[in-house]
Nucleic acid binder design. Structure first.
Lengths: 351, 351
DNA sequence: CTGTTAGCGCTTTCAT
DNA sequence: ATGAAAGCGCTAACAG
């Protein structure tokens, strides 16, 4: 490992332009207080050589502290949002040498009040940047107005509101993923088949944007390509086991001809478990998200497909984008749709 | 963005231990020339506080230059290896502020001589680390012996030789991906169906490890779960269009009942193009790799599934792992199987 | 407006 | 064996 010296430094530019390092720095960062003459000299020098600032040296010298806040839903171990949090943590570790501090604030995603309380407390903390999923539209727009006043940049994660000035969005195309669910499910069924669409409510859940978009995509695909299929919606409640079994039982008695099932959130394992209990493991299941319990369903052939959306990567990329903007003024790509991963028994171990 | 000062620095440790910064540094890096007494004091201080070195400051001070060499096959625009090269380039840009230099050396993956020549020239360059796919086993083992003598660390990419001391491996489980190809293809066909397995040779190609493993996986799945299917192998030569058409024509005349086709490398578009010309777009096709031309086949319903392996990520991660090992002594995970992505018409735009 | 200078956290030399 | 000091590329404060 030799020593190096071929990179152009600010010093080199200063020499070439015949000004001081300070002046070069002022030009580079548009800090003003530079005569047109000097500015021109520096710009000419800059045009001659390829200067790439050493961002680490810069960060070191500034010793600026970046405070980021991530507002994400409370989660249980194995949840979808746990993956997001892990991604945030990984980015945090990577950036911590650049004095980036991240605080995660949780809220109840089914409780508007909890959300607005979170927003409020965050504003008082005066962070340098914010990452959050805008679940509640009105409340979020309100929040964003305040962020704009304070000139605090923010990144959307998982969910998205159009026509606002977020720095970036990392998430998926839910509608499209619903269509894929339809395609995969119907590929396993005979024409004319009957499909059960499970809508699992959680406490207080009105159905998230994501879930609803997926459902729309699913139905869209069905009417477009498989209008011969019959679909029925069954509402389940995540916390009320007995009621669900009863509900499912009733449905299956009424529609024993059902051969396919789809569920649009990570509670896939609930469905597969029930179907197993009711001895209907002949019913093909398409679900969402790579939780350990869902993976297990795949391994046991209780579910055939899972659609996944790389939560870890979403968390990681959101933080990275925000940090790099704050530290190095990098402008990220605005809309970043994550890949829609198709997971089956055979590739589930490589996820 | 406030100023910060809460991170523990070497100075803090020195103060706490009652020694100089130099001594702390000597202990931290085992550079010797430290009395047992001083060492103990420093170690005690270190035990008391949580010290995390600022790696960027470290790299800045060392101004050490890292020379990496990537030995990868020559590629054409749109090839699989172009993706790998892009990943390498991305990592390069990210690390270049840490004085990492990367040189890519190409070889003809179907020519042993070209490979050994590349190996030889690389040795003369005395790089600090090497990344390469060990296509030719014996030659590679030979090469590795020399690398070990020179204590040059290396990372395997795409391909893998067991029981050698590579720093890490990034690639896919080819056998498993072949099984997945079989599952997906058969899912679209009726039982008893006839399948064409295309083996496309390129100039001088004996069939790469990867391709052969995929083929094995495919056949394994077929005998295990679909012994009722019939599979026929057809050999095509990438450069000889006319001959291929002829070959395919003959095959289809002999087996007009064919309803499925699989091809184990990125030349998928060749097959779909031919089938289209021959008006056999009823035949379902499973292929490999997300080249633009293959994507197009997916969009046009000429192919139904592509299996992909994130070449860009492979390139990126290989470089990152090697750099972080060299610069910061990080030990990466040894065997890293990349996800096996399943691509269909509906998610191809999100890749 | 501009140049000089101190210092970010760390490594490396050089006296002692 | 050890401490002091210079310097990596950059920024920020200050004097002129």
């Amino acid at each position: 490992m030799e020593k190096s010296h071929e990179k152009t430094r600010i010093k080199d530019i200063a020499l070439l332009a015949g000004v001081s390092e300070g002046t070069v720095d002022r030009v580079l960062h548009n800090r003003g207080n530079v005569s047109p003459k000097s500015r021109k000299k520096v710009e000419e020098a800059l045009a001659q050589i390829d200067y790439k600032p050493n961002l680490y040296a810069s960060a070191l010298a500034q010793k600026r502290k970046i405070n980021l806040i991530c507002i994400i839903p409370i989660y249980n171990p194995g949840d979808y949002w746990e993956g997001v949090a892990e991604g945030i943590e990984r980015a945090h570790e990577e950036m911590s040498m650049l004095n980036v501090y991240i605080r995660i604030i949780h809220f109840d995603q089914y409780d508007l009040y909890s959300c607005s309380k979170a927003f409020e407390s965050v504003l008082n903390l005066n962070p340098d940047g914010i990452i959050f999923p805008p679940f509640f539209k009105e409340e979020s727009i309100n929040f964003i107005a305040k962020l704009n006043l304070k000139k605090i940049p923010f990144v959307f994660l998982d969910s998205h509101i159009p026509n606002v000035n977020m720095l970036a969005y990392y998430g998926q195309d839910s509608f499209r993923s619903g269509e894929i669910a339809a395609k995969l499910l119907t590929s396993m069924l005979n024409s004319d088949a009957t499909i059960a669409m499970f809508h699992t409510y959680r406490k207080g859940d009105l159905g998230s944007n994501q879930t609803m978009e997926r459902e729309k995509g699913f139905l869209n695909y069905m009417t477009q390509f498989h209008s011969d299929f019959k679909t029925h919606t069954i509402g389940l409640i995540a916390s009320d086991n007995e009621r669900n079994i009863e509900e499912l039982n009733q449905y299956l008695e009424k529609h024993p001809e059902t051969t396919g099932a789809v569920i649009f959130n990570s509670l896939t394992y609930l469905i597969t478990d029930y179907l197993k209990q009711l001895n209907r493991s002949d019913i093909k299941v398409v679900g969402y998200d790579i939780l350990e319990r869902n993976k297990e369903s795949l391994r046991n052939d209780d579910a055939q497909f899972l659609l996944a959306q790389r939560p870890e990567e979403q968390g990681y990329l959101s933080v990275k984008a925000l940090c790099e903007n704050l530290l190095f003024n990098r402008i990220p790509i605005k809309i970043n749709y994550m890949p829609i991963d198709i997971i089956i028994k055979e590739n589930v171990e490589f996820t």
